[in-house]
Design a protein around this nucleic acid. Structure first.
Length: 321
DNA sequence: CAGACGTGGCG
DNA sequence: TCGCCAAGTCT
């Protein structure tokens, strides 16, 4: 067992927990080590947290659910204005459920990944049809809603209902990778070891929801991917990565996502036309935004298959009605 | 499980 | 400039 890629620095949690595996010839501790990161992170959050509207004390579970879906792969600064408009227009799930799905797509604007708008609309209808108009509070039920996966279910259960869940998003994974594992970046996909680690760090019920949002915020504002601001970090003295001299990432190349010329870009162009038109558009209006006909047809078929667009009997196209 | 799925801004 | 990255989910 000489897998010594871990730094010899003082870990923020016990070695067994940090490794995500049982120490040789010993049982894992039943009771996790106390979380040394808890107090400094909570103190930092109390002083440095952004004043985001979905974190306001009066924010409804619905408004929090909407924010979480919008924030998937999308920066806060771009979500803010769209979320505000949605909340004015559709303050409840029932309000959105009363609209055709195309309206959700139209008011999604340029947030990207527009299937999320469709998911939110489907969530709204499921919530009104099956849950009495109230956003479900438990993780398992949230997971049954469209577009809600492991992370979002935990986030809503934690932020909206103050449940005790490990909320593992890209920010938290990066903070834990650095502070505890001593590595610059987490694995490409979430591992069971990461999940065990996150759960081992979970404080008691009273602190769990704040801890979750605080670690996320730390990752978003200080422990950033590109240029971490270690000078402003409340746990810099405990950080295994810093203690190890901030070794550069040496794992496999990270996924690069090219965009220009892809079907995704083509879909974006086509949908943009449909969003801006307030009625069915002739095929010509779509043809002019993309030169390569086969790719354009494939993209359009894809949008229709995904429920983001529909063809009418007269051969015109529009957002789903 | 790797790849699809939008868009814009920053280092 | 341009690749990388942003509160993921689904297949």
């Amino acid at each position: 067992m000489s897998d010594e890629r871990r730094p010899a620095a003082a870990p923020a949690v016990s070695a067994g927990e940090a490794e995500g595996r049982a120490p040789a010839r010993h049982y894992r501790r039943e009771v996790p080590e106390s979380n040394l990161l808890l107090e400094p992170v909570l103190d930092w959050y109390a002083e440095s947290a952004r004043d985001l509207p979905w974190r306001a004390p009066g924010a409804s579970p619905w408004s929090i659910l909407v924010s979480e879906i919008m924030l998937q792969q999308t920066p806060v600064i771009r979500v803010l204005p769209v979320w505000t408009e949605w909340m004015e227009r559709w303050p409840t799930a029932a309000a959105l459920a009363g609209e055709p799905p195309g309206e959700a797509v139209r008011h999604w604007g340029r947030l990207g990944y527009p299937r999320r708008a469709l998911n939110l609309h489907a969530c709204a209808r499921a919530i009104t049809d099956r849950h009495g108009g109230e956003v479900p509070s438990d993780h398992a039920t949230l997971l049954t809603l469209p577009g809600i996966g492991e992370y979002t279910a935990a986030a809503v259960a934690s932020f909206a209902f103050k449940g005790r869940h490990a909320v593992l998003d890209t920010n938290v994974r990066r903070v834990l990778a650095r502070a505890v594992r001593g590595e610059e970046y987490p694995p490409k996909a979430t591992t069971s070891a990461e999940r065990r680690l996150a759960e081992s760090l979970l404080p008691g019920a009273d602190d769990a929801p704040v801890w979750a949002v605080a670690v996320m915020e730390l990752g978003a504002l200080v422990c950033t991917a590109r240029a971490p601001r270690c000078a402003d970090c409340p746990i810099v003295e405990l950080c295994a990565w810093r203690l190890a001299g901030k070794p550069a990432y040496d794992g496999p190349a990270r996924k690069g996502q090219t965009y220009a010329g892809t079907d995704r870009q083509c879909r974006g162009r086509l949908l943009s036309v449909l969003r801006q038109a307030h009625g069915p558009v002739p095929k010509d209006a779509l043809d002019v935004v993309w030169d390569i006909a086969p790719q354009r047809e494939r993209a359009l078929d894809g949008l229709i298959a995904d429920g983001l667009a529909e063809v009418l009997d007269d051969g015109t196209y529009r957002l789903p009605g």
